[in-house]
Design a protein around this nucleic acid. Structure first.
Lengths: 110, 110
DNA sequence: ATCGAAGTATGATCATGATCGAACTTCGAT
DNA sequence: ATCGAAGTTCGATCATGATCATACTTCGAT
């Protein structure tokens, strides 16, 4: 099998946040499930495995949301064993979109 | 015919910005046509009639976008003759969602 | 009173994206 | 070597929303 293919799956591309269009970031932020994920990362500041988030969707849907967040430059993902750890790319997002994370994630939703 | 109905059309309800869910605001912001509208209001600070915006959509689509923006609490609309003047609700939005407008509209899009 | 300009309402189309289940892969532990 | 846990992939469904054309209303000007 293609070792390159395996490698790509285990270490998927993370864009430069500065290269991500605002449109894509806003679309990523405009979903309540994804904001729950971001908020948990934002509030705790810790790495978190995909399975540990308080979201009421199936595993395949969760995978979809994590992909959207990664491709929007908002999170970093890396494997640890069979778990996938997620980190908020806080500094980089702040640099590319000043004030946006704080405005969105600092807001207390009903 | 119902004068009440006519009145409702000419002076449609504007929500309190503080009552609008973040979800709704983000959905309103996550459309490129609507951001063009907001940006023109943001940059000029002037009232503008619906027809004067640099958006490449039909009149009915434009009406739709203005409705979305108004219902999200982002703009104020009032009739002047047959024109409908639009204002950014800058202060109120800033109060309810600190930093959000500046983060989104201050960003220079490609 | 009529006409045009500015929007609105309605109904249709069409694309996108959120969602799921089922089958699969990969790793760590037994 | 096998099993379960953690995700992924694939295909399908389904809801929403952006879009338009058409017909309509309303106002101001002639």
């Amino acid at each position: 099998m293609g070792t390159a293919e395996q490698e790509r799956r285990r270490a998927p591309a993370h864009p430069e946040v500065g290269d991500v269009p605002l449109q894509q970031v806003l679309e990523a932020l405009a979903d309540p499930v994804r904001r729950v994920i971001l908020r948990e990362l934002y509030d705790s500041g810790e790495d978190r495995a995909c399975g540990t988030f308080d979201i009421a969707v199936s595993k395949s849907t969760a995978t979809h949301h994590f992909n959207v967040l990664r491709e929007a430059g908002l999170i970093h993902q890396r494997y640890v064993g069979t778990s996938r750890m997620n980190t908020l790319r806080h500094k980089e997002v702040d640099a590319a979109f000043p004030g946006l994370l704080d405005a969105v994630l600092g807001h207390v939703e009903a």
